[in-house]
Amino acid sequence: MKKKAGPVENEVNIWDSNSNLWPYGFQDLGTSTYDLSSASIPNVPYFDLRIYRESRVKSLIKLHSKDMYRLLEKVHFDGNYYRVKCASSGEWEYCWDLAVRVQFFGKMLGMTLYPKRLVSQKEKRITYRSMIIVNPYQLWDEALVSKFWNLQERVEFLIARILFHECIHVMISLGNHLPSGFGNTDIYFEFRKMIEVSVSRNLSTEYHNVLFRLWNLVLFGASGSESEKKLLERVQEIYEFLINEKYSNQKTGKAFRFPSNNKKIARKYAWMAAVKAGGDMQVSKRVWQVEARRLSIALRELFDGIDTELNNMGFKLNSKN
């Protein structure tokens, strides 16, 4: 019988000052494990999420990405951390721990929380820890109900789709953080290709229009004490977040046959970007909202341009990495 993987034990570590630099998460909810059996869903007195089969969710993901399946293979969806990757570079070892939790919480389908960067001088090990929270609250969405009458299958499909999207963020971060070559996957290469195309000469106008809107929003949300260099870094971070979300939505939509829409994606994430930029600290709310809408328009034009350029190059997102 195959031995069940156990959660990773805590190490003696020094918290690194860069542990909060994570452009894809929204907040840090801590690392305690929730009792999923007591989760609730709007308009339903009681719903036991444990009806889903973890193995079935992983099988659905494996159909579309073997790299992602390998990432999740030893991870149980219990909120505990499991080691998914280790690589050595020089005297140091770099590891990634991942936790997945399934629970109902509001109306955000999923989130990837800020990873913690833990440094063990004694063990010469740097460990990144990230958590994905999956919220399958759309169980009674009309399109899903018509496709999956069986409630168990519907839950499993929805969890797989949300988890697929969030794991893309983790895999991109693996490629960005681990030593060169150790985080390389087809997903990471596709994302880097989209970034490369987005800043190409053919899209120079669209690219700079987006940067201009982001710069305005960052200025609107600045406290007044940040340096210009710091503000420019924030613009670049938010820009990469936006391309990351376009890629993740497009990739997930293709894999699970829920087509993505550039206008809808641009509108949704333009507002998130405006919030990430700092809000309306320096201007009226109305001025801030107008600039966020202008960012949405500029983003849609950039996203459409990216698709056109990739199509002209004959580059297509692989639905089976």
Rank of each mutant, 00 (worst) to 15 (best):
S173R: 13
E153V: 05
G305R: 05
I187V: 09
N202D: 13
I172C: 09
N262I: 02
W92Q: 02
L71R: 03
D48C: 01
Y188W: 14
V218K: 01
G221M: 07
L158N: 13
V145I: 08
R267F: 11
V199L: 04
W22C: 12
K4T: 13
A143V: 13
A160P: 00
D16N: 13
Q282E: 13
R101Y: 10
L29N: 09
Y69A: 04
K3I: 11
K124N: 15
L178G: 01
N249W: 07
E245F: 00
V102S: 07
I51E: 00
L174D: 10
F164R: 00
I132V: 14
F164E: 00
W149G: 12
E190P: 11
Y188T: 10
G25M: 02
V287Q: 15
L219K: 14
A255S: 13
R154Y: 08
R129F: 03
Y239S: 04
E240F: 13
I126P: 03
I126L: 10
R293P: 00
L214K: 03
K193Y: 12
A255D: 02
S198N: 01
S65Y: 06
L217N: 03
F164V: 02
L63H: 06
F212K: 14
Y34F: 14
V44F: 04
G305V: 05
C95F: 01
K124C: 12
S37P: 00
I243M: 05
E156N: 06
F77S: 04
R267K: 15
H76R: 09
M313D: 05
C86G: 02
S55T: 13
E54V: 03
D97M: 07
R286D: 15
F105H: 11
P136M: 06
G30E: 08
W140S: 10
T112Q: 07
L71W: 03
E301R: 14
F26N: 04
A87P: 06
N10T: 08
G224D: 01
R70H: 14
F105N: 10
K85M: 07
K107D: 10
Q121D: 09
V170Y: 00
R267G: 01
N176V: 03
E237S: 14
E228H: 09
P7C: 07
L63E: 13
V218N: 03
R213I: 01
M111T: 11
K316T: 06
L302C: 09
A292N: 04
I187G: 06
F258I: 14
V287I: 15
F191S: 01
S89C: 11
E226I: 06
D307Q: 12
F212L: 15
F104D: 00
L163M: 09
S32H: 13
R257Y: 07
V283Q: 06
G279I: 07
G175W: 02
E237F: 12
L178N: 03
E291A: 09
H208D: 05
L163H: 08
F191W: 15
V170M: 02
K251R: 11
T185Q: 00
A266T: 12
P115T: 04
D28S: 11
K316Y: 13
V12S: 09
A87S: 11
K251E: 05
K122H: 15
E206R: 11
N318P: 02
F303R: 03
F258K: 11
N311F: 06
Q289G: 06
G253R: 03
N43E: 08
L36M: 12
A292R: 05
G278F: 07
A222M: 05
S89R: 07
K2I: 10
I133E: 15
V287L: 12
L231Y: 03
